[in-house]
């Protein structure tokens, strides 16, 4: 069984290895005019090492990571809380839904110019952007999840003597978890995409800012290092929530 798993993992990595090899060969054989703009993979790896060794990458990575974590956690908690109340109480849903539907379509980055003036250029800015990016989708998935819980479960719980709060916490929320996790998983990756864009435009630190500085110095290798870090983080955040969802719901779904 374990061997089989290892074998499957091997097959998954193989296309990536082939891709990197082709990249390396094309760059080294000068197949693309102006090699300067297309460093081979080995150069990128070396640059990754230097950037890690001198702490530049680490410093900017941690800056981005902290922003994502704070913004995403706050946005998700708020989204789940408000979403739960809206999904559970129809009159609150009716009151809030029109306003929220108005704000929901605005892309998170669309808020940037406004927030730059309101908040100013400081740590609160990227965190707020990530917060907005996480809040709305998590909210909508939570509302959908709560509303989709079959009313029969609620009636059964009532006849068994459960209070409304008890029903919400022990029946409705657990059954809405799959939907809530869908929201969290999608937004965990999205938070990274948004933070990079925000840092590129407005913030002097973080992976996004590092990329913009590399651009002005025409350091393609650094840009590619940053992109790889970004890809890995998006992927691992999404995978983390897939794993959590499995843990929480696989037993009974």
């Amino acid at each position: 069984m374990k061997r089989l798993k290892q074998l499957k993992l091997g097959w998954g990595i193989l296309p990536v290895v082939i891709f990197l090899a082709i990249w390396e060969i094309i760059a080294r054989l000068n197949l693309i005019p102006g090699q300067f703009f297309f460093p081979p993979f080995s150069t990128v790896v070396m640059e990754f090492y230097y950037l890690t060794a001198n702490g530049v990458l680490g410093e900017n990575f941690v800056a981005s990571l902290v922003r994502v974590l704070i913004g995403f956690c706050a946005g998700s908690v708020a989204g789940i809380a408000v979403g739960t109340v809206m999904g559970w109480r129809e009159n609150i849903n009716k009151a809030l839904n029109p306003v929220i539907s108005l704000f929901y379509p605005i892309p998170a980055l669309g808020w940037l110019p406004l927030l730059m003036l309101w908040i100013g250029i400081n740590e609160a800015l990227p965190i707020t952007i990530v917060f907005i990016c996480s809040f709305f989708p998590v909210l909508y998935n939570t509302v959908t999840g709560i509303k989709n819980v079959d009313k029969d479960y609620i009636q059964v719980a009532r006849t068994l003597g459960a209070s409304d709060v008890k029903i919400l916490t022990t029946v409705v929320m657990p059954l809405a978890l799959p939907n809530i996790f869908t929201g969290l998983r999608l937004e965990a990756g999205m938070a990274w995409r948004v933070i990079i864009a925000a840092e590129m435009v407005a913030i002097p630190t973080g992976i996004g800012a590092l990329m913009m500085r590399a651009e002005s110095l025409i350091r393609i290798d650094i840009i590619i290092v940053c992109l790889i870090v970004l890809a890995v983080m998006c992927l691992s955040f999404e995978k983390f929530f897939t794993y959590l969802e499995e843990k929480a719901t696989a037993r009974w779904r």
């Binding site: 079959d150 029969d152 009636q155 059964v156 029946v171 059954l175």
Partner: peptide, 11 residues
């Protein structure tokens, strides 16, 4: 109350 579809809590 025993419901027609039983409605056991799946979780």
């Amino acid at each position: 109350y025993l419901f027609q579809d039983l409605i056991l809590f799946p979780h």
